[in-house]
Design a protein around this nucleic acid. Structure first.
Length: 559
RNA sequence: AGUCCUGUAGUGUAAUGGUAGCACAAGAGAUUCUGACUCUCUUAGUCUAGGUUCGAGCCCUGGCAGGACUGCCA
């Protein structure tokens, strides 16, 4: 990109730039308003990167992004989720500074606005049953009909609303409705309910309230109260915007926020519905919200995904109103890119096969220095002990290899990564026909040098000393969902879950790995195996296991 | 009595009304002590029919297709 080239603005950034240029706003204030009813997932990352990203871009004007918990429904929200959300936003690399808010702190303000609406004759207490309200709303083709309680006097409404607040009604007996237009083609505008009775304990306000505002009413007020200028949300709220604007217009608010909608993230092979993810957790299909197979930010973190890669992925998504499905390969590409830079390399053998170097003395033990990263000297090197008996990956040997297979086979040469070039001289088979041991001879003096004249050696395989290596129980994770669109499944998850998404293997690992270090490994296509994060890993501490086999199997062999 | 939103290579996105670019994916090749990375090349696109215009992906009209909306959820 040339220096003179200005970055392309998506339509939201363009609106903000225009508002700044025209003097409508002196700065921009955005917000990320999760409901604390689940963990944040990769879909939220898009919204976080957008709202917080815009605030960062306009930092010079004093722009900011608020983290606000939209906790207006006491029945669905828990404190555990508040903490996880804060942690995940921070991990992603964003900071709300002083601007941490709870919608529940504004309950009095919402109430005052509702009273103001009643006084203007723009809201009324409806005592129809929920069923009656539903039936009289009409449908997509039929206008609604007005409630018999619609034309109560202001005084009566005021008194009734006060009694609602005082707890004189049971749930479902009375609601406060905005008086707009029961014949509106937009059903949201057909006298929407703005307050309902709920005798529930709220995680923040306890039992102070027994009436709670609806999202449609509360959200614009929250934005206005915080002087949010641009309230960015996903497309499903588009049809609610007329009521958002109506609320701002008719309530005593200190600022005029504007709601702008963009398309939410859809990823193939991924479920993003909180309700469905919660089902996975509750049914024990995964170990928790932060199971490495989960699309939650905490799951991706354990899986080893660098936050920078997720941010970069979100940047490339673009902001549009088109509902498409992003290929998860785009995310994985970013992850590979970052991990390839920062991950230290180690050797591990997941499916061990014994390799004996027959011209190596029993007690011979050669210390070979192996770089921790190919091409990054600053990451240092480590000494690995090479002995007569080694473990290699079973798939790195073929009894009858095709010509395009570059690794071990009878009479073939291969390099033991970081060590000698060896020539396969034979192998043994068990009664069941399975290869149990491979024999080879090493070529002295081939460490750190090119293969001698006439020796073809096109691959380097990884290995672990049978004597110095360590056996480790490793949990191997793979993709959770086996189908491209798991949301399309009719019922439950049985048909879309990959039964092999979690397996345990007895692997052989380098002694340089701390005890317990490779306890969780995520199989990552075309990059090798990565250690799943153990919560405390920093971005620079990721480990990658060398892997010789490409999943694509370009040599034409079996899968 | 339906209203509103959206259609650009396989996918995601760019293009003051003026040469349809980029990334990922896919394919071919080079390189390689990770069949990775990197590098080179290739394939492939404006939903449709009209209209306005010297000129339309962009503006207008009509089709077609996909989506949102009928919670006292957010």
């Amino acid at each position: 990109m040339s220096e003179t080239e200005t970055p392309k603005l998506d339509f939201i950034r363009q609106i903000i730039a225009d508002d700044l240029a025209s003097g409508k706003h002196e700065t921009t204030v955005t917000r990320f308003p999760p409901e604390p009813n689940g963990y944040l997932h990769i879909g939220h990352a898009k919204a976080i990167c957008l709202s917080f990203g815009i605030a960062e871009e306009h930092a010079a004007t004093g722009a900011r992004c608020h983290l606000r918990f939209d906790d207006t429904n006491p029945e669905k929200e828990e404190t555990e989720y508040v903490e996880s959300i804060k942690e995940d936003v921070h991990w992603l690399g964003f900071d709300w500074g002083e601007h941490l808010y709870f919608a529940s702190d504004y309950f009095s303000f919402f109430h005052d606005c509702a009273v103001a609406l009643i006084e203007k004759g723009l809201a009324y207490v409806d005592q129809q049953t929920p069923e009656q309200i539903r039936e009289t709303r009409g449908n997509l083709n039929v206008p609604g009909t007005e409630s018999p309680y619609r034309d109560r006097s202001v005084e009566e409404n005021l008194e009734l609303f006060a009694r609602m607040k005082a707890g004189e009604f049971k749930e479902g007996e009375a609601v406060l409705r905005a008086k707009i237009d029961m014949a509106s083609p937009n059903i949201v505008m057909r006298d929407p309910v703005i307050y309902r009775v709920m005798h529930a304990e709220h995680h923040n306000t306890g039992s102070d309230w027994c009436i709670y505002p609806m999202y449609d009413f509360a959200h614009p007020l929250e934005d206005a109260k915080e002087h949010v200028t641009h309230s960015l949300c996903t497309l499903e709220f588009e049809i609610h915007r007329p009521f958002y604007d109506w609320t701002i217009e008719h309530c005593p608010v200190p600022s005029q926020p504007r709601q702008i909608e963009f398309s939410r993230l859809n990823l193939n092979y991924t479920v993003m519905s909180k309700r469905k993810l919660l089902t996975l957790v509750k049914d024990g299909r995964v170990s928790g919200w932060d199971d490495p197979r989960m699309p939650t930010l905490s799951g991706l973190r354990r899986r080893g995904y660098p936050a920078a890669a997720i941010r970069s992925f979100c940047k490339g998504l673009g902001i549009t109103k088109y509902k498409g499905t992003t290929d998860i390969a785009l995310l994985e590409h970013e992850v590979r890119g970052y991990l390839n830079e920062v991950a230290a390399r180690r050797m591990a053998v997941l499916d061990p096969l014994k390799l004996v170097i027959t011209n190596f003395a029993e007690d011979q033990a050669d210390e070979v220095p192996i770089p921790n990263h190919p091409g990054k000297e600053e990451m240092g090197e480590r000494q690995v002990t090479l002995t007569r008996e080694l473990w290699i990956e079973r798939s790195d040997f073929m009894e009858d290899p095709p010509k395009k297979f570059f690794r071990l086979g009878p009479e073939r040469h291969v390099r033991l990564r970081g060590g000698y070039i060896v020539k396969c001289t034979g192998f043994e088979k068990g009664a069941d026909g399975e290869v149990t041991e491979v024999h080879c001879e090493y070529l002295p003096g081939t460490i750190g040098s090119n293969p001698p004249e006439g020796v073809k050696c096109k691959a380097a395989i990884h290995w672990v000393s049978a004597e110095h290596g360590r056996e480790a129980e490793v949990r191997l994770y793979d993709r959770l969902f086996s189908v491209e669109d798991p949301d399309a499944a009719e019922e439950g998850f049985a048909s879309v879950l990959n039964p092999d998404s979690l397996s345990t293997v007895t692997a052989q690992v380098e002694p340089s790995l701390a005890e317990g270090d490779p306890e969780e490994i995520f199989q990552f296509e075309r990059t090798g195996y990565f250690v799943a994060d153990r919560h405390d890993h920093q971005p620079g501490e990721r480990l990658a296991f060398n892997r010789t086999v490409a999943l694509r199997d370009s040599w034409g062999g079996k899968k």
